[in-house]
Amino acid sequence: MGFEIPIEKNSGKIAEVTIGATSEQGGTRSNTITIGGSTALPFLFFEGEHPNRPALAMEVFDKVPAKYPEALLDYYRDVIDKPADMAKKCVEQYGAELISVRLDETHPEKGDRSADEAADVVRQVLDSVKVPLIITGHSHYEKINVVMKKVCEVTAGENCLINYVETDNYKTIAAACMAYNHSIVAQSPIDVNMAKQLNILLSDMNFPSEKIVIDPLTGALGYGLEYTYSIMERIRNDGLAGDSMLAFPMIINPGYESSRVKEVRVTEEEYPDWGDMELRSAYWETATAMSLLSAGSELIVMYHPKAMETVKKHVDELYSAESGN
């Protein structure tokens, strides 16, 4: 008997989530980004559909991160403290398809910027680029609830991706997203059950399922990546097997997580066995992103322009199988 490709059909389909809104849709974006919609495991075109390519975002900040790696500063030195300009650079030079605005400075211990100031930063970025936005917060519940409510309000109609809610703090922000028609990131600590529980809680409050993106919590390469990798594979397997509460696209943060590890910030002189720092900092983020893409991620927030370029190129290459064998 000859060889037959063993095909595994899935009953489930990953929800399609659209981020951003054009002027016809009540927003000001030049285009929207849709992720999800797969009916098979990542990049397996012989047994299912993958109607949307994983999307690549880049991140800008309301405040220069305290320990921003030198290898990255070389690319961003001129704009790092100007979120609107940095966003423009990310989109125009580095090909970012979405921009994430990280509002760390609103954290009471990191500057305690007001909700209005945060809203201003978001406004500036909205005005400077035309791609859809991700608004990224932090874990200080009381403060971020106030900030996100305000941000949701001033960006009404833009269908931003509000990043993030967690089980212990979801109601306020989710309600704001529903009121102003934004999408949401449901973050859970590297655990399939907790990811599912949060999605159930959101759906029990009638949060629309086509507006949920899961953040399984990214562990950088060498710093817990294996947990993220396996949790993502499990979430995706369960989602495709028909568990609708896990059938959502997933967002990961290779840029943010990699930028915090030692491996991207020490020189070859200090660690001769680790090789060239320039290359290594791009490699670390690339390897984190590519492995998590293999595990099912659809939305990837990058920092390193070289890693960004590389990942984008290889997402395209992975999609070359789309046309069939």
Binding site: D191, V192, N193, M194, K196, Q197, I200
Partner: peptide
């Protein structure tokens, strides 16, 4: 751990 976190819901995550 997986069974346990699955059970920390009413009546169960599943």
């Amino acid at each position: 751990m997986n069974e346990y976190t699955g059970s920390l819901f009413l009546p169960h995550t599943d």
